[in-house]
């Protein structure tokens, strides 16, 4: 399973800005609902989160210590 941005459907107003900035077609607007499509192409650029006017998209980071 590929980690993907998380959408809060209650906050999402279906404006589609996230879809338009996405570099890899990982987000689609179906009616007025945003869906994510699992893809390895998603490089976690977080532009969808940055552009969202309602804070409905989250691109959370897992923080780990793995000293080399």
């Amino acid at each position: 399973m590929v980690e993907m941005p998380v959408i809060d459907r209650e906050k999402c107003n279906g404006c589609g800005l996230c879809v338009s900035v996405c570099h890899c077609q990982a987000l689609v607007l179906v009616g007025d609902v945003i869906m994510t499509i699992e893809t390895e192409e998603c490089g976690w650029c977080t532009e969808c989160e940055a552009v969202c006017p309602t804070g409905a998209i989250r691109c959370p980071y897992e923080i780990v210590i793995e000293e080399s």
Binding site: R58, P60, I63, V64, I65, E67
Partner: peptide, 26 residues
């Protein structure tokens, strides 16, 4: 913040439950 929210895979508590994930906004 990174140190506080990091799950340590190198220390003695490496089996500890993972810390919450954070967005850049958070």
């Amino acid at each position: 913040l990174l140190l506080e929210y990091a799950t340590d895979h190198t220390g003695p508590d490496k089996e500890a439950s993972p810390k919450p994930r954070l967005t850049q906004q958070e």
